[in-house]
Design a protein around this nucleic acid. Structure first.
Length: 436
RNA sequence: GUGGGUGUAGCUCAGUUGGUUAGAGUGCCGGGUUGUGGCCCCGGAGGUCGAGGGUUCAAAUCCCUUCACUCACCCCA
């Protein structure tokens, strides 16, 4: 076919779906706002260096899986693969840390990764991000998690579970890492080929392997929680205490790791039993070293990201987010149609969503249209109604009809609003042979 | 990047060992009441069978190439 299609891995979000998106976004705004977060909007394009320095150019993440290209000026630019680095950049660039000791941000929008598309992983995908700077206090961690769980619960997601872990800090994590590597290396023969490679590139990833042999080995491996320094252990203990006090259910998952080095202490994921292997809905953690790594002062930070596509796929299916017209005007004949057209525009100016069609068809076809559009009311205007300046208004839900006058659009708009809100008595039934 | 699966009507899919005019459901349009929707009944429109090439008297069907979609692997910020 000769049609131009969208770019691979990029998806249109059609009007039938956008209602769900807005519901998610509005809910996020409302809840985040009550926790004192403020919205920040950042560019989708950044200098590649921001991500390579933030994420660490150790792996092929940077080289292979980012949307990177060269600008005409010769700069290497990258479509943001995540939001945290950009938010940190904006935070430092505008010296926001000098305006307030604690800054709380949220943002939402598209991210880009040049991976092969698969279920729930597109090249353009969407995240809701939250970042809090300036507090290393475990109460901040707990409050953040409370907010996250509240948000997901508010959306009605089933089977949610919060998993937490501590990843230690530069004082204790390297020690642990050494011990793990030594342990895994000793059992190298039991590892799968992938994990033997990971041992050199990213040893902690072995914990995520699904392979039988690897799993058996991993369960006997040293646990980070046993290796925490006193400060990290205290932080984690406080976090758990506050979560309990806040009635936020959680489980400790000592095997949860993060690939990136800048993560410190608290790491968490929210999973759902409603999905298969890819069950993480949200994830995040504390990244106290990141601001310094990006050239700023040492400011503690913690945040999370929520995958919106996955979230939306989990929304209860029976919820209906469609926005329906309030009124359909069925006009019969040219004169009536002209009058109806002007009336419909007047009503729209008064905030009444009104639909009509311009092609000349029978009333039955009009009624079907009104039904199809899900209109609450249908106003029927023919020559008689035009002459009398009053017309039958049919309630498409209850089936009854009442007579309304057509002389004053403003008055009619008010009347329709009141009918819709059921502030006026129900319409009479039996105007026609329709209510058996 | 590697491997598997699938491409037929707007959508979901049938289509036999290659054989005449490619089907169903749903949706769309119309009729069943010359002015009353939903349920039901009837009718209609709608397809370069993803694209290109090959084999054959004959290809949606077999072969090759390519593209797209999809699932998994790798990786996961």
């Amino acid at each position: 076919m000769g049609l131009i299609t969208s770019v691979r891995g990029f998806k249109d979000i059609l009007p039938d779906e956008t209602g769900r998106w807005r519901h998610v976004e509005n809910t996020a705004r409302r809840i985040f706002s009550s926790f004192g977060l403020r919205e920040i909007r950042i560019p989708i394009l950044e200098k590649t260096e921001l991500f390579s320095r933030g994420i660490g150019d150790t792996t092929d993440i940077v080289e292979k899986e980012m949307y990177t290209f060269e600008d005409r000026g010769g700069d290497s630019l990258t479509l943001r693969p995540e939001a945290t680095a950009s938010i940190v950049r904006a935070y430092l660039e505008h010296h926001l840390h000098q305006h307030e000791t604690v800054s709380k941000f949220y943002t939402m929008g598209p991210m880009f990764r040049r991976e092969r598309p698969q279920k729930g992983r597109y090249r353009q995908f969407h995240q809701i991000n939250v970042e809090i700077f300036g507090s290393a206090d475990p109460r901040t961690d707990a409050e953040l998690l409370l907010m996250l769980v509240l948000f997901l619960g508010e959306l009605g997601l089933p089977g949610l579970q919060l998993e937490i872990n501590s990843l230690g800090c530069p004082a204790c994590r390297p020690v642990f890492k050494e011990r793990v590597i030594a342990f895994l290396d000793a059992g190298r023969d039991d590892l799968c080929a992938d994990c033997r490679r990971r041992l050199d590139t990213n040893p902690l990833r072995v914990f995520d392997c699904k392979n039988e042999g690897c799993r058996r080995l991993v369960v006997k491996a040293p646990v980070i929680l046993d290796s925490l320094c006193d400060e990290c252990a205290a932080h984690f203990a406080d976090l758990k205490r506050y979560l309990e006090a806040l009635d936020v259910p959680f489980v400790v998952n000592g095997g949860m790791v993060r690939g990136l080095d800048y993560y410190r202490r608290t790491a968490f994921e929210v999973t759902t039993t409603a999905l298969g292997a890819q069950n993480a809905v949200a994830g995040g953690g504390r990244y106290d070293g990141l601001t310094e790594q990006l050239g700023g002062p040492d400011i503690p930070g913690i945040g999370f990201a929520i995958g919106v596509e996955r979230l939306i796929s989990l929304l209860p299916a029976d919820e209906d987010f469609a926005e329906r017209p309030l009124l359909y005007i069925a006009a019969l004949g040219n004169e009536a149609a002209d009058f109806a057209y002007l009336l419909s525009c007047s009503l729209k100016k008064h905030g009444i969503r009104t639909e009509m069609d311009f092609d000349d068809r029978g009333l039955k076809s009009r009624m079907k249209r009104a039904d199809k559009l899900g209109c609450r009311f249908t106003l029927i205007i023919g020559d008689d109604e035009l002459a009398r300046k009053e017309a039958p208004l049919r309630d498409m839900i209850e089936g009854g009809q009442r007579t309304v006058t057509l002389t004053d659009p403003a008055e009619l708009a008010l009347e329709l609003g009141r009918y819709a809100a059921n502030e006026l008595p129900a319409a009479r039934h039996g105007n026609n042979n329709d209510n058996q």
